[in-house]
């Protein structure tokens, strides 16, 4: 059922509905860039940090972090409640009785939230480069690879939250519990690279910190450390598998 007219119609309809979720669109698309601008307005953040091996400024670190933030907001905060509502309201069940099937609507939701992340990332990237002169990646290949793996990892976290929760109330609570560590490990509060070495090493095993390290490396150094890429990829693979295995359609 790859690209049947029905699947396309589901995507089109979900895109319209997504366009009505102004709150979600603001947080995913606008907020990360707004955060970057606010932080960029602080003069000391535009000075090279002593703690940075590559002589990067705080604001430079916030480019990958803001991009990761948009992934967290889309995959963990915005998307799960939509799926809860579809599951509890019987939309998925209803679609099971049509030739299209319920997976089409979930695929559409992931695609649309991922598209919003992409738009947000481009915005962060362009505003960063134009307004704050943040560096472009030294290794585009490494940057894009780290980016893609991070998208997969972030959405698989959201997918697991959606899969394991029995109802919307519990799901929203779990989403919030996952959200704060996700923000922290993405480096929203403190850049990962500014943390003490031990903590930084430990955080390197979390998907978002590893993604932040890899994207920063690709920005300022060259092709990122394979160990960081491997950590992000492994999280994405394991969590996706768990989500697929445990997802309940009803």
């Amino acid at each position: 059922m790859s690209t049947s007219p029905g699947t396309t119609a589901v995507l089109r309809t979900e895109a319209r509905l997504f366009g009505r979720e102004l709150g979600s669109l603001f947080w995913i698309v606008v907020f990360p860039t707004a955060l970057l601008c606010i932080l960029g307005a602080i003069p000391s953040f535009r000075e090279p940090g002593e703690w940075s091996e590559q002589g990067l400024r705080v604001i430079d670190f916030y480019v990958p972090t803001s991009i990761l933030l948009s992934m967290v907001l889309a995959a963990i905060m915005a998307m799960p409640p939509v799926v809860f509502a579809y599951r509890e309201g019987g939309v998925l069940r209803r679609l099971r009785t049509t030739p299209v099937g319920p997976s089409a609507i979930l695929i559409a939701q992931v695609m649309l939230h991922a598209a919003a992340v992409l738009a947000s990332s481009v915005l962060v990237f362009v505003v960063g480069a134009v307004a704050f002169d943040t560096p472009l990646p030294e290794s585009w290949a490494g940057y894009l690879l780290a980016y893609l793996l991070a998208v997969v990892a972030a959405f698989s976290i959201g997918a697991v939250v959606t899969a394991v929760t029995p109802n919307a109330r519990v799901g929203t609570a779990i989403g919030t519990i996952v959200f704060f560590p996700a923000m922290f490990t993405a480096g929203v509060w403190v850049p990962i690279q500014a943390l003490p070495d031990t903590l930084r090493t430990v955080l390197g095993f979390t998907p978002l910190s590893a993604a932040s390290e890899a994207m920063t490396d690709a920005m300022a150094g060259g092709f990122p450390d394979l160990s960081h890429l491997a950590v992000v990829a492994a999280w994405g693979a394991v969590l996706s598998l768990i989500a697929v295995r445990t997802f309940r359609w009803e």
């Binding site: 309809t13 979900e14 509905l17 009505r20 979720e21 509502a85 579809y86 309201g89 019987g90 939309v91 069940r93 209803r94 009785t97 049509t98 030739p99």
Partner: peptide
Amino acid sequence: TRILGIQLQESRLQAK
């Protein structure tokens, strides 16, 4: 699904 249509009890659609 091509030959059977069903109206389910208490089934909702997307809110918007």
